[in-house]
């Protein structure tokens, strides 16, 4: 879908992933573009989060509404819209779970067909075990130990998820991502109870 758009002001052609007119320097309205392209980073699960942050900050240095406060209402509006889009894309890519969801979608896999994996008995049992261990832990030392175990499980799942993306095994990736989101929920729960 590499169709050019037209600058609202000088009618110059604007390439798909560009939001500033090269001719008149005017900011352009938002367009449908995936999060990776918006950020200008390569489409991979194994993102360097520091690189992501750098790309994000660089974009905000250009598109944040503070840079347009002196310009027309229209330009302020576009910068608010674009800046919001950039904020959201950054947050989504910064989390492994939503990043995996985006990648699945981009590869034509509908993450909503995930229901089956809820019934995956192995995953359910694994999760139950972790929860029980934490609930039965008597000292805070023991609780911390079970959180450590959970963290290990999270990084293990992340590694497997990364491998399945590399092998383009999206059905497996989807299952792992569901598991990961469960583990992450439990982790937040545990932290609150500490």
């Amino acid at each position: 879908m590499s169709v050019n758009s037209i600058c609202w002001d000088c009618e110059n052609a604007i390439p798909p992933n560009v939001f500033i007119c090269q001719k008149c320097n005017k900011i352009q309205p938002p367009k449908q573009v995936d999060e990776f392209k918006l950020m200008g980073i390569s489409e991979t699960f194994d993102l360097d989060l520091d690189e992501l942050e750098k790309a994000y900050l660089k974009l905000q240095q250009v598109f944040h509404p503070d840079k347009y406060s002196q310009l027309s209402d229209q330009e302020i509006k576009y910068s608010t819209l674009l800046s919001s889009m950039i904020n959201e894309a950054y947050q989504k890519l910064n989390s492994s779970i939503s990043r995996a969801t985006i990648l699945l979608k981009l590869n034509g896999f509908n993450p909503h067909s995930e229901d089956k994996s809820f019934n995956d008995p192995d995953v359910l049992e694994e999760i139950m075990d972790i929860q029980n261990e934490f609930l039965e832990a008597e000292s805070s030392e023991q609780k911390k130990l079970s959180i450590q175990k959970l963290n290990l499980k999270i990084s293990e799942t992340m590694e497997n998820l990364s491998i399945s993306f590399k092998n383009k095994e999206y059905a497996i990736a989807n299952k792992l991502n569901v598991k990961l989101s469960y583990l992450e929920k439990i982790r937040i729960d545990f932290k609150k109870q500490l």
Partner: peptide, 9 residues
């Protein structure tokens, strides 16, 4: 996104 450096007026 392709960034084009714009000069601040």
């Amino acid at each position: 996104m392709n960034l084009i450096k714009i000069k601040e007026p």
